[in-house]
């Protein structure tokens, strides 16, 4: 088992390098820093001097791969590849357009993001799995049929409408909670409750339907027939046998997103004015702040890969075949 986990973690290294190279290529090879400067400065102010100044300010004036003028290791380190891409491995993301340190900004914004994403994730998982189990228990009945219809309808609504509708109904019409905003400390709950609720509801449709398919697939298996032949009740069959086997495919989709919770949600945060990483990213996109977007792409991939490894670890808990290999 240890060898299995170790092998999986070793596999992450080439992937991380690949991600790093892809982001580098996207940001510096597809367009030259000159193009970016022209775009940022706008047509009126474009002069060769302005471009040069813009590049120097951001450290984009170095060569891409090899610096023939530098000495020693500088040939490799005094380049954009090293300074802007490779240094991200050690958490150095550089500065945003407004001059702030990106790494520090990220650490302070993680909290609010997590405050919404984590409850949404846990509550959402609980609600969807329970709903799917309910549908599975009453499979073939009208409850099941209409439940699936509801799921399909729910998943046909754009996430934007959930947020707009929720804000309109609960905050504007009923005035139950503030429409947006955030505060640290304990009274944050009144800002969090609506986004969490909306996050849970908007996820029900597709997840519950998917889990139901998994449960139904498991229910058709031979061991379920054996369990019924033992005289177990349908509830015992569902919880003791089906749920535990269905956990294996469910975990594949679920565990991988846990680290990504740190990244927050773009839509929710921007609509509710939560100062998290999601709104940070959106602001950066709108302001065309390349350094921040680059940093977020890299962090997102690192978290995803961490999620893959978490998935591998979680398999060893639910699947004895891997645990004992």
């Amino acid at each position: 088992m240890l060898a299995y986990l170790l092998r999986r973690s070793l596999y992450a290294i080439p992937i991380l390098i690949g991600v790093n190279l892809i982001t580098f290529a996207l940001f510096f090879v597809v367009n030259s820093p000159d193009d970016m400067a022209r775009m940022q400065l706008g047509v009126k102010r474009v002069t060769p001097e302005a471009i040069a100044k813009w590049k120097v300010e951001r450290g984009y004036d170095k060569p891409l791969f090899f610096n023939a003028q530098a000495e020693g290791v500088g040939v490799l380190t005094d380049t954009i590849l090293f300074a802007k891409s490779a240094r991200m491995f050690v958490g150095d993301f550089g500065r945003a357009e407004d001059g702030r340190d990106i790494a520090r900004e990220i650490t302070t914004r993680m909290g609010p993001s997590l405050a919404i994403a984590l409850p949404t994730f846990i509550l959402g998982l609980y609600v969807t799995v329970s709903f799917a189990l309910l549908l599975t228990f009453f499979r073939g009945s009208y409850l099941d049929i209409w439940g699936v219809v509801l799921c399909v309808a729910l998943m046909s609504i754009s996430g934007l409408f959930y947020i707009i509708g929720g804000q309109f109904l609960i905050s504007k019409l009923w005035r139950l909670v503030p429409i947006s905003g955030y505060s640290g400390g304990l009274d944050a709950w009144k800002f969090l409750i609506l986004p969490v609720l909306i996050g849970v509801i908007s996820g029900i449709g597709s997840s519950a339907r998917w889990y139901r398919t998994i449960f139904l697939e498991e229910i058709g298996r031979d061991y379920v027939r054996t369990a019924r032949a033992k005289g177990l009740s349908e509830v015992a069959v569902l919880f003791r046998h089906v749920l535990r086997n269905a956990m294996i495919p469910i975990l594949t989709g679920v565990v991988v997103v846990i680290p990504l919770l740190f990244m927050g949600s773009l839509l929710t945060e921007s609509f509710f004015g939560i100062p998290g990483l999601g709104s940070y990213t959106i602001d950066a996109i709108n302001a065309q702040d390349f350094a921040v977007v680059r940093a977020m792409v890299f962090i997102g991939s690192v978290l995803y890969i961490a999620g893959l490894m978490l998935t591998d670890i979680s398999y060893t808990f639910v699947d004895p075949r891997i645990r004992f290999e």
């Binding site: 992937i15 991600v19 892809i22 982001t23 996207l26 940001f27 990504l260 990244m263 773009l266 990213t281 996109i285 977007v293 680059r294 977020m296 792409v297 997102g300 991939s301 995803y304 890969i305 893959l308």
Partner: peptide, 11 residues
Amino acid sequence: SSIPGVLLIAA
């Protein structure tokens, strides 16, 4: 696929 979709698209 390890680059989150929205971010890759954004970039």
